[in-house]
């Protein structure tokens, strides 16, 4: 089975995110990056499937030079190869342009299943997987908390507000997995060393048949108009303990129906 994991390499958890005041977008150049935990869950799920049924697992991602480290993490975990879409013309792409690039790269090779996280852990749009599925003409199955493949059928437990739905789809298909679906493995040291020898294929926008007007800032239909901080929340009530503090807190919790 040929599995594609579509995931993002994001600024490392130790990085304080800054917004470029001119573009209103996150500053990604020149900061430390790592494989998005959501993408790591997708890679893990793909590896478990590959280990069961055999085949390949290719990570497909888009971003600057800085993201090589995160690509290598996926390869060190066990991905067989990676595709890195890398072109200055793609900077500032909105979700649709990103999906076009990803879909074009994925479509260059045969595939059976695309696995994505439900949303990235930096920008949280959650839109790209659906767009990729549409562009490739495969069914999107979302919010999987469990997934299995038997023959040509993908079966997932789809998280819902009241519990879960069991959903089936014929392959090829795209599935998004929730972060709780698994505990991603740590790469083995041998895997980290072996990752250096694995293929990272690079595509430019032109390689993918994308014109300058389709992608990047120029092609973005979605514009970020304003970035602001969340409103400050009022300081809660401070209970001074005059001997009745415990009771007052208990009454407050009871009133809020917490206890």
């Amino acid at each position: 089975m040929d599995i594609v994991v579509c995931g993002k390499i994001i600024p490392a958890s130790t990085v304080t995110i800054e917004i470029d005041p001119a573009t209103k977008r996150m500053i990604r150049k020149g900061v430390a990056h790592e494989l998005d935990p959501a993408a790591a869950s997708a890679v893990e799920e793909g590896l478990r499937l590959m280990e069961k049924v055999g085949g390949t697992l290719t990570l497909v991602t888009m971003g600057f030079n800085e993201i090589t480290i995160g690509i290598r993490t996926a390869l060190a975990m066990g991905a067989t190869s990676a595709v890195h879409i890398f072109d200055d013309a793609l900077a500032g792409s909105d979700t649709l342009a990103t999906a076009k690039a990803l879909a074009a790269a994925i479509g260059k090779r045969p595939f059976d299943l695309i696995i994505c996280g439900t949303e990235s852990s930096d920008s949280y749009s959650g839109i790209v997987p659906g767009q990729v599925a549409r562009l490739l003409g495969v069914p999107p199955v979302t919010f999987a908390t469990e997934m299995a493949v038997e023959g040509n059928t993908l079966t997932v437990k789809r998280q819902s507000e009241s519990g879960y739905d069991v959903v089936e789809a014929d392959l090829p298909a795209l599935v998004t997995v929730t972060s709780g679906i698994n505990e991603p493995r740590y790469p083995q040291l041998k895997g980290i060393m072996a990752a250096k020898r694995k293929e990272i294929l690079q595509y430019s926008a032109a390689d993918l048949g994308l014109a300058a007007g389709d992608v990047g800032e120029a092609g973005a239909r979605e514009k970020v108009l304003e970035v602001g901080r969340p409103p400050r929340r009022d300081v809660g009530e401070v209970v001074e303990d005059d001997g009745e503090g415990g009771k007052r807190i208990a009454d407050f919790l009871a009133e809020a129906k917490v206890i």
Binding site: A32, E34, T68, I69, T73, A76, P187, L189, I192, K196
Partner: peptide
């Protein structure tokens, strides 16, 4: 680059 990767992992 390899040492940075090792440190991160």
């Amino acid at each position: 680059e390899d040492q940075v990767q090792l440190r991160g992992e």
